[in-house]
């Protein structure tokens, strides 16, 4: 009976030895049918509570506050950077190379696009070389040797009001998606 109302039509109460000793009022309160409907409520409640707890467990692994280095930093003035040179002073702290060429200044990610190691800038060979698996990148970030499948990524680079360079690592520009044409991927000075 889906509505579970035992008063509408009473199913015959089985005459078990235990039931014989009981008063009729008891068997009206909980009979076999309503017991099963209450049981299904109980199971639904149990499954819901268990599912809720596992959802909580899953969410627990995604913290709201991260104690990680800041993703945006001031990188000095454009005049601090020499045309045609790769500046490695932000590599250890922020994971960024700042390079100035004839067109402007851009911020390259130090994460190798193969498997995420950190390449080194070899000034004599004029290339970035990854120590893990030998990927090589030109100073523009274009991959030219080794297993790296795509160029290094560039970060958003803009000027602050006081003329300092802001590097914002939360926004990435990928060459293979044509994003290097974005005005914020290259700071024209």
């Amino acid at each position: 009976m889906p509505d579970g109302k035992s008063t509408v039509s009473k199913p015959p109460v089985p005459k078990s030895p235990a039931a014989l000793g009981k008063t009729t009022k008891d068997s009206e309160d909980i009979n076999r049918r309503s017991f099963f409907s209450w049981l299904s409520f109980g199971w639904i409640g149990f499954v819901a509570a268990t599912g809720g707890f596992f959802t909580m467990m899953l969410r627990f692994f995604f913290p709201n506050v991260l104690f990680e280095p800041v993703q945006t930093f001031l990188a000095g003035y454009p005049d601090d950077y020499i045309i045609g040179e790769v500046d490695t002073k932000w590599k250890d702290k922020y994971g960024v190379w700042i390079i100035r060429n004839d067109q402007g200044i851009y911020a390259l990610s130090t994460v190798c696009t193969h498997l995420g190691c950190t390449p080194n800038w070899l000034a004599s060979a004029k290339k970035f070389k990854c120590p893990c698996h030998g990927s090589g990148f030109k100073s523009t970030g274009i991959n030219f040797e080794g297993p790296a499948p795509r160029p290094l990524e560039r970060y958003r680079i803009v000027l602050a009001d006081d003329g300092q360079i802001i590097v914002d690592k939360t926004k990435k520009f990928q060459q293979e998606k044509g994003q290097w044409e974005d005005p914020e991927a290259l700071l024209k000075v």
């Binding site: 692994f61 995604f62 913290p63 991260l66 104690f67 990680e68 280095p69």
Partner: peptide
Amino acid sequence: MGSDARFALIGGRFMGEA
């Protein structure tokens, strides 16, 4: 990057104390 399987594994966006 802040909510995927890798994030759950290493507890952050970058390899660190978490």
